[in-house]
Computed example of a mutant assay.
Amino acid sequence: MKLIFAGTPEFAARALDALIKAGHDIALVLTQPDRPAGRGMKLKPSPVKALALEHGLRVEQPTTLRNADAQAMLAEVGAEVMVVAAYGLILPQAVLDTPRRGCLNIHASLLPRWRGAAPIQRALLAGDRETGITIMQMDAGLDTGDMLSVHPLAIADDETAASLHEGLAALGAQAIVDALARLDALEAQKQDEAGVTYAHKLSKEEARVDWTQDADTVARAIRAYNPAPGAHTLLNGETLKLWMAHALPGDAEPGVVVSASADGVLVGCGQGLVCLTELQAAGGKRLAARDFVAGRTLQDLRLGA
């Protein structure tokens, strides 16, 4: 098919790569403007732009799709379908109506659960045992369109947002190729409004660990905020980032380190203990527990102080 592709991060780049390999005619790629990144804060292209340029595809980076010029540009392409994956711009109705067969979205949840900006992290925070990919026919609402296909994915006990992102990116790429191949046979299904939940955008503030919560909740949060925004607490008054953890039975005062060994740093919670297995001190590197505790005593591990 002749396609327009709209996406920005690595999740979207995986889908674009699959569509290219499947032989589709990617007539236009839309992505967010280059952003400053790295220590030098030099402008860096999005993963989607980098991949598109590697393949010699036309790339445009409008700041809005609401003006007449942008909409005329899309109309001139004459695309059959527009595929959207984590693009970052709102598509007005005029854009949704431009491709002959509409706009398809690759959404990283089992809709209607976790509509919105952060479905991967919210599924982990909630303790969901399953998530997946929904290929959706887009409408003007926030992830409210009819579902064309649903692809479940189990969530492992030690899942992080990074590992779940990887699994969903691969599944999403496969799902959109399959959906386009079977588009005539797919039956659109309305979403069940009774099951709607919203995956609100993440904030750095919410990623600060609350040790009064139960250990399962704390451990899930640490994994859900890996890699961004990064769960954190204080160690001797400085930021300590926490990257991997699991819950264990036990009892200790919330936020108190009860032991530190190569197996992990055990911290009391409102109920149970959290075993921290990957940590990062201020100005340091991410370290496995055995390397982090080397040369440190319990007196050195006073959280929140």
Rank of each mutant, 00 (worst) to 15 (best):
L3Y: 05
F5Q: 09
A6K: 01
P9I: 11
F11H: 06
A15S: 15
A18S: 10
L19C: 04
I20L: 15
A22E: 13
D25H: 11
D25F: 03
V29Q: 02
P33I: 04
A37M: 00
A37W: 00
G40L: 13
K42S: 04
L53N: 05
N67F: 12
D69N: 11
L74H: 07
G78K: 10
V83S: 04
V84S: 09
G88L: 08
G88D: 05
V95L: 08
P99V: 08
R101Y: 02
L110K: 07
P112N: 00
P112F: 00
P112C: 00
R113Y: 11
A123L: 03
A126R: 10
T144S: 13
M147Q: 15
L148M: 15
S149A: 13
H151F: 06
H151P: 01
H151G: 00
E159D: 12
E159P: 08
H165A: 13
A169T: 05
L171V: 06
L171H: 08
I176A: 13
L180M: 11
A185P: 03
E187P: 04
E187H: 10
G195N: 14
H200M: 02
L202A: 15
A207M: 00
A207E: 01
V209A: 04
Q213E: 06
A215M: 05
D216G: 08
A219T: 14
A221V: 00
A224T: 01
Y225R: 12
A228H: 09
G230S: 12
A231S: 12
H232F: 02
N236E: 12
T239L: 09
K241C: 01
L242N: 00
L242Q: 00
A247Q: 14
A247V: 12
L248F: 02
P249F: 09
P249C: 02
V267E: 10
G272F: 10
L276T: 10
T277H: 03
E278H: 14
R286K: 15
A288Q: 14
G295M: 08
R296Y: 04
D300P: 09
A305R: 12
